[in-house]
């Protein structure tokens, strides 16, 4: 296996509040190989977006990284000074946000936004940067880019804007792209196109992708591996085909059962009873224990660490065979 591009270990994110710190992410660990696509799924508030923001160093105060470490190509990046971190953003880690309608500055031409980003990260001249901007727009599939480059964001449709956003995130050929629900705000008919563009570009530019979404369909089609998050922790992480076909963690099982299929049209969709706990009221032991169909005593007292099962890891006592997997020798497919 090649050295991981990104290595997150025991990441813990806290929000300082008047009633003491709230832990929003706890013990999040995963590795990402170069060029790999990792899907991150979970309910709203499970910590998917926070994981992305923590990696790129854009947590809004009072949120902060309270523990663990993040390494990019072996180098620690979670404790860099702001200016050093800024140089990594855009150049080595790109990020795409949920809503393309609000991600672009409405007052600046898209060409100017592309050129300023290119100029920030390269030593190209103004003219060369514009050439590159045109090439990028062609790459993301914007028709007649030489006509559209001087347009303003409001002159583009939602799908076209998200293409521009992808072009902006890929300006400086980052080795890692974090896509935070890149299709949620788009029409269903456009979603597949955008995912296809993202996937093709990541492959062509050899970029690894963290694809955050709550759409299991997108993950199943796109990702190599998937991490299922629950209440700020990773419940299960492993190869997509395995996790989708045969989930181990009871929460992942519930999630997969809730995917509608054509065959099961007549039957009622499976639901997981209850709701995810608020950050201030995460129960002791396993965070999922109040909703878990397989709960037993140990789950209510002891918090399960990620346990290695084949190439996968699941944080569930059902799979405890006496040995506890250390995060250091985690499995990367």
């Amino acid at each position: 296996m090649t050295a991981p591009l990104l290595s997150v270990k025991d990441l813990r994110v806290e929000f300082a509040t008047r009633r003491g710190p709230l832990t929003a992410l706890d013990g999040v660990s995963f590795d990402l190989a170069p060029g790999e696509i990792l899907g991150v799924v979970g309910e709203s508030g499970a910590g998917k977006s926070l994981t992305g923001l923590a990696i790129i160093g854009l947590l809004d105060p009072p949120g902060r990284i309270a523990g663990g470490e993040i390494r990019l190509a072996g180098e620690r990046i979670d404790n860099l000074p702001p200016e050093a971190m800024r140089k990594i953003r855009g150049r080595r880690i790109g990020m795409i946000f949920q809503d393309p309608l609000t991600s672009l500055n409405p007052l600046l031409r898209i060409g100017d936004q592309l050129v300023e980003t290119i100029l920030t990260h390269t030593s190209l001249t103004q003219r060369q940067a514009r050439e590159r901007a045109l090439a990028l727009l062609t790459e993301v599939g914007i028709p007649a880019p030489e006509k559209r480059i001087d347009g303003y964001p409001h002159e583009f449709s939602g799908g076209m804007r998200q293409r521009v956003v992808i072009a902006l995130a890929l300006c400086a050929e980052p080795a890692l792209v974090i896509a935070d629900e890149p299709t949620t705000a788009l029409d269903v008919s456009v979603q597949a196109q955008i995912i296809a563009v993202l996937k093709r570009l990541a492959r062509e530019h050899h970029a690894a992708v963290i694809l955050i979404t709550h759409d299991m369909g997108v993950i199943a089609e796109t990702a190599d591996r998937v991490a299922v998050m629950y209440a700020g922790r990773i419940a299960e992480i492993g190869r997509v085909d395995e996790v989708v076909r045969d989930p181990l963690h009871p929460y992942a099982k519930g999630l997969m059962a809730a995917i509608p299929t054509l065959e099961g049209r007549a039957a009622r969709l499976a639901q997981i009873p209850g709701a995810m706990p608020r950050l201030s009221a995460i129960p002791p032991g396993c965070a999922f224990n109040p909703r878990c169909p397989n709960v037993f005593d140990r789950c209510r007292i002891e918090r399960p660490p990620p346990l290695a099962i084949g190439t996968r890891r699941a944080a569930c006592w059902l799979y405890d065979r006496g040995e506890v997997a250390s995060p250091a020798k985690e499995a990367v497919s």
Partner: peptide, 24 residues
Amino acid sequence: DYIRFARARGLSERKVHFRHALKN
């Protein structure tokens, strides 16, 4: 959002503040 995206693209704070924010 576009300010956060401008930061995510690694633009300098000065550009984010004066080119992107002030104009708006």
